[in-house]
Nucleic acid binder design. Structure first.
Length: 305
DNA sequence: TGATATGTTATCTT
DNA sequence: CAAGATAACATATC
């Protein structure tokens, strides 16, 4: 679930929470998530470090560390939530900050009542625990254990960053840039390019479908068959959709329930994702679901050509 | 029981 | 060699 809006939302909330906190201890319960480092070395590298600031590249959350590598002076803890990762910050006192994949409440509690597994930490899906000196804690939970935490110095981070295309929401990502990228892949289906992080950083399956609907373009359309005016529309659409999603708290999961029990922010705005078989919100047709490059793909046949 | 799942990468198969 | 398809990661849900 976490695409650009979700990770960005998490970053903003976490920024306030963890900035200037100093790491006191680290517990790695599932060492695979910190590969290639061993649990021990991973922990050692983090202990004593202060969180200076937060950043995001594509769908990766970055925490800048104080001491960093001796040579480069910069150090970053990079966190990728992949499909089911979740970060929970528990202050010594006060509300939890949660970002990423939601976890359901216990079976005996209806949705919206209580905080479910989220309130009982750590639990069986908690794989990394970072304790700060002020008594607060950051938990990394991940049901499917696809996510990871890595430590980068400035150089290796730059290398990682170079593997991604420009940020979808950056000003540099304009029509000219978009055209330039698309031009190289005339025979590709448009959705595949939208979700390719090497070309555009931040768009995942959900927002790709939503953006295509917004632009009236079928996800399966070949790039060479898309007019310039449509390319422009698609550009405006994915920017608009991503920004709206961020403003709504970046929620895109249909199972997401916030701590206060309110349904997630962006769900009501979904036009096609997860709505297969339901009536299109623009016309009277039904939303269809197909498989495109191995991913579920949703569109309205009459609104999207 | 089997199909499906939001991300990414490795490894097969054309 | 390259594009495309599929498996893999590990678990839960419908």
């Amino acid at each position: 679930m976490p695409e650009l809006p979700e990770v960005e939302t998490l970053r903003r909330e976490l920024d306030r929470a963890v900035k200037n906190k100093i790491i006191k201890s680290v517990e790695v319960r599932w060492p695979k998530l910190v590969k290639p480092l061993s649990a021990n070395i991973f922990s050692k590298k983090l202990i004593g470090q202060k969180i200076i600031s937060t950043d995001r590249r594509a769908k990766i959350l970055l925490l800048k560390l104080s001491k960093g590598d001796k040579k480069t002076r910069d150090g970053f803890l990079a966190i990728h939530l992949k499909m089911t990762g979740q970060l929970i910050f528990r202050p010594k006192k006060g509300r939890l900050v949660i970002g990423g994949h939601p976890l359901p409440p216990p079976p005996n509690l209806p949705l919206g009542q209580g905080e479910g597994l989220n309130s009982n930490l750590p639990h069986k899906h908690t794989h990394i625990i970072i304790n700060f000196t002020d008594g607060s804690t950051l938990y990394f939970n991940d049901i499917r254990k696809f996510g990871w935490l890595k430590i980068f110095d400035a150089k290796s981070l730059e290398k990682l960053s170079a593997e991604f295309g420009p940020e979808a929401l950056s000003d540099q990502f304009n029509l000219k840039k978009f055209q330039e990228i698309l031009k190289k892949y005339p025979n590709q289906k448009i959705k595949q390019l939208l979700t390719d992080q090497k070309l555009i950083a931040g768009i995942g399956n959900i927002y790709a479908d939503e953006s295509c609907f917004c632009a009236g373009i079928r996800p399966t359309r070949l790039v060479k068959d898309i007019k310039l005016s449509e390319i422009n529309k698609l550009l405006l659409c994915f920017k608009k959709t991503l920004k709206l999603a961020i403003s709504k708290g970046g929620t895109s999961s249909d199972t997401y329930v916030k701590l206060n029990g309110q349904p997630g922010g962006f769900v009501p705005y979904l036009k096609v994702y997860g709505r297969q078989g339901e009536k299109c919100k623009k016309c009277q047709g039904l939303v269809e679901k197909i498989r495109l490059n191995g991913r579920g793909t949703h569109f309205c046949r009459s609104c999207q050509k």
